[in-house]
Computed example of a mutant assay.
Amino acid sequence: MERTPEQDAAQEILARLVRQCMAGDQHAWQQLVATQHRRIYAICYRFTGSSCDAEDLTQDVFLKLYKNLASFDTQKGSFQTWITTLARNLLVDHFRRTRLDRASDSLDASYDGDEDGPTMGDRLADTRPTQEHHVAGMELKVRIQEALKQLSPELREAVILRDLEDMDYKEIAEVLRIPEGTVKSRISRGRGELARLLQRIEGQVV
């Protein structure tokens, strides 16, 4: 996946902020937190499904970032990948401590496992004005959330990083510390499992 000129420019600005932070610039640190907070919170929320847990975990991520920023090598990789790895490791610890297996807020994983197919978000888009269709859309959303509750964390995290965070396979492989082939396999399995779970849930409803 090739980056656009705009993405390259954004990465350069971010890299400059990181260098300033590493030099002890507190204003740069505040800017860095401001630029990354929303993204990190979103990742934490999608994994936990809890705004309270997401707030706490986001604070933990930035605390760990502050303590470990000096260890980041600007020549070896992307800061976005590095901070995502920090967040992911804390989330794994969180799962182990609490044994949570709640739904992430991911509604954009492909319904049938096809990378180019319509996403769940597309299927939930209610473009029809009738109350009947609105109710049907809400019922489908509930079913998807129920299916997500049953998806394993390892499949869920791969789908979230790919479909919601728009990370490429190489970046996800670095974050999860697994081969790219395994990343693709988990994404495919996650999407396929969601489809099967939805079919089962819909069959029970009918």
Rank of each mutant, 00 (worst) to 15 (best):
E2P: 15
E2I: 10
T4I: 04
P5V: 08
P5R: 13
E6K: 15
Q7R: 15
D8Y: 09
E12P: 03
A15V: 01
A15D: 15
L17A: 09
R19M: 02
M22R: 15
D25E: 14
H27C: 02
A28N: 09
W29E: 06
L32Q: 13
T35H: 14
T35A: 10
R39H: 12
I40L: 15
C44G: 05
Y45K: 14
R46L: 02
F47S: 12
T48R: 10
S50Y: 02
A54P: 10
D56L: 04
K67I: 02
K67L: 07
F72L: 05
T74W: 03
Q75A: 13
K76R: 15
S78P: 07
F79M: 08
T81K: 12
T85A: 08
L86G: 00
L86A: 01
L86R: 09
R88N: 09
L90T: 03
L91C: 06
D93K: 11
H94R: 12
H94E: 05
R96W: 03
R97D: 03
R97P: 00
R99G: 03
L100M: 05
R102V: 00
S104C: 13
S104V: 01
S106T: 08
L107A: 02
L107C: 01
D108Y: 10
D108W: 09
G113N: 01
E115K: 11
G117V: 09
P118M: 05
P118I: 01
G121L: 13
L124F: 01
R128P: 00
P129Q: 08
P129K: 12
T130N: 10
E132Y: 09
H133T: 05
H134T: 14
A136P: 06
E139I: 04
E139M: 08
L140Q: 12
L140S: 00
L140N: 01
K141Q: 10
V142P: 00
I144K: 01
I144T: 05
I144C: 04
E146S: 05
Q150A: 04
P153K: 11
P153R: 06
E154Q: 14
L155D: 10
L155N: 06
L155T: 02
R156E: 14
R156T: 11
V159T: 12
D163R: 13
L164D: 13
E165F: 09
M167G: 04
Y169L: 10
K170R: 14
E171L: 08
I172Q: 08
I172M: 11
A173D: 02
E174W: 03
I178N: 06
I178P: 03
P179A: 09
P179N: 14
E180C: 12
G181P: 04
G181R: 15
G181K: 14
V183G: 03
S185V: 04
I187E: 09
E193H: 09
R196S: 11
I201S: 01
G203V: 00
Q204M: 08
V205E: 07
V205K: 15
V206K: 13
